[in-house]
């Protein structure tokens, strides 16, 4: 086992903490995140409310803990969607080549011509602004990137002699794809999926920030940040803490992604 890198340790710790907080938030929060309390409106961080309260007197920390669940769940579901369909399309396209590949890739490139969040915005208009809408919209928006990466990996693997060796052994194409090609695509898929988890969390909060994400009163980091925007003068913490959560999560994912890339990238492996 290679020794763990600094990046990997820090990133892994942050992401593990995120999962733990999200898990705790399912069973317990310091206060009821939905409970309104007009006596405690816009209270600054204090011993009672560690991170203060919002304009309806709801506890910010509790809402952030529940918001973490939304982020993790939406990020996870989006990544699963994109990994499943992207891998399927990439494998078919890369292995089929010829006209099938040409048509699939023409569509793929057209979808890639929409910046991810823009495509998601358009799709949200169709699916409606709720968490399932976001998952489908982001999932569809990210699938083309995954498909392209997988296709690229398949195309380069096809040139490798062990794929030809499998053919010479008389193995069927399906067997070759499942036994030899797919397992060797796992490294790039993992690296990209890690980044996508970050993109999804960021996009979800951006969409919620724009008012097109998970509708209030259900808390997400993005809609908390948006709700805090008008109170930026009186209650800066309302915008500060949700943003900090997003930033830390992204930092964790980026560090973890770097560590994974260093470990899994075959070009780097040759140098060790």
């Amino acid at each position: 086992m290679k020794k763990l890198t600094f990046n990997g340790v820090i990133g892994g710790t942050i992401i593990t903490l995120l999962f733990i907080v999200a898990a705790i938030g399912m069973f317990w929060t310091p206060f009821d995140p939905m409970k309104l309390s007009f006596s405690a409106r816009l209270a600054a961080p204090s011993g009672a409310h560690l991170l203060g309260t919002d304009e309806f007197g709801r506890d910010v920390l509790s809402r952030l803990m529940v918001g973490a669940q939304a982020s993790v769940w939406i990020g996870f579901a989006t990544v699963c969607f994109a990994v499943f369909f992207g891998t399927l399309i990439g494998l078919i396209s890369g292995y089929a080549r010829g006209w099938a590949d040409g048509i699939i890739m023409a569509f793929n490139n057209a979808l890639l011509a929409f910046p991810g969040i823009l495509l998601a915005l358009g799709l949200l208009a169709v699916f409606g602004a709720n968490q399932y809408g976001i998952i489908f919209a982001l999932g569809i928006a990210y699938t083309p990137s995954m498909a392209r990466i997988v296709r690229g990996a398949v195309l380069s693997l096809r040139e490798r002699e062990f794929i030809e060796a499998s053919k010479v052994m008389g193995n069927s194409e399906i067997y070759t794809i499942l036994r030899h090609i797919l397992p060797n695509c796992l490294a790039p898929i993992t690296v990209l999926a890690t980044s996508m988890f970050g993109w999804a969390i960021l996009s979800e909060s951006a969409l919620s920030f724009l008012g097109l994400g998970v509708p209030p009163p259900a808390p997400t980091w993005g809609n908390m940040l948006a709700a805090g925007r008008p109170f930026i003068e009186q209650a800066a913490w309302l915008g500060f803490f949700p943003g900090l959560c997003i930033a830390l999560t992204l930092l964790g994912i980026n560090l973890l992604g770097d560590a994974l890339r260093d470990k899994l990238d075959p070009r780097m492996r040759g140098l060790k």
Partner: peptide
């Protein structure tokens, strides 16, 4: 660079607005 790229632009924007504007 890694820290900068991890900061969501809408949050960074708010912080800048808070500091330089308010």
């Amino acid at each position: 660079a890694t820290v900068l790229l991890s900061i969501p632009t809408f949050w960074l924007g708010l912080l800048l607005l808070l500091f330089f504007g308010l």
